[in-house]
Amino acid sequence: MNSKNYSPWQLWSLVLLRVAIGWHFLYEGISKLMNPDWSSLAYLMDSEGWFEGLFHSMAGNPSLLNVLDFLNIWGLILIGAGLILGMFTRIAAIAGMVLLAFYYLSHPPLVGATYLIPSEGSYLWVNKNLIELITLWVILLFPTWNTVGIDRFIFNKYRN
C-alpha cells in the first residue's frame, strides 16, 4: 500500500503510533544507558518457559552478557530514534520486532509461570510486549516514512 492513498487522518494516526512506539524504545534505551549499574542479568535469570535454559546460560557468561547489554541499550536507542524520525524505518521496525520477540520469549505469560520481576498488569499468553510487537508489524505493513520521515529523502530522492 502506498501512503499517498491514505486520508490525512489515517496518515497522521499511523505516524503518531510510530512515534509513540519509538519514544518508548528510546527512553528504555536512554534510561539504561544513564544507569551505570543496569544489567540484563536479573532479567535473564528470571526467565521461564520454553527458552529459559538459553537465557540463563546467556546470564551465566559474563563476556556475552556485556555484549548483550551493549546491543540491547544501543538497539533500543537506534530503533527508537529510527521510528520517531522515520529514518531507516523498515530496518528499525524489524529490529524492534526481533527485540520484543526476545523479551516475550524470555518471559512468556504462561499459565503457571511466576516471575520475580513484578508485572504491572495481569496477563495470560498475550502481554504488552506481544501487543507492541504486533503493532510494529502493522507499522511495517502500512508505511508512513515515505511521506513523513527522513526516509522520504533517502529513498524517494530520485523516484520523482
Binding site: V15, V19, L26, I84, T147, V148
Partner: peptide, 19 residues
C-alpha cells in the same frame, strides 16, 4: 517535502528536554 520529511523532528527535541 522538507516540512513533511522532518515533521517528527520536534519530537526528538521534546524527548531530549523531558529526559
Amino acid at each position: 517535502d522538507l516540512l513533511k520529511g522532518f515533521a517528527t523532528l520536534p519530537v526528538v527535541g521534546a524527548f531530549a528536554y523531558g529526559a
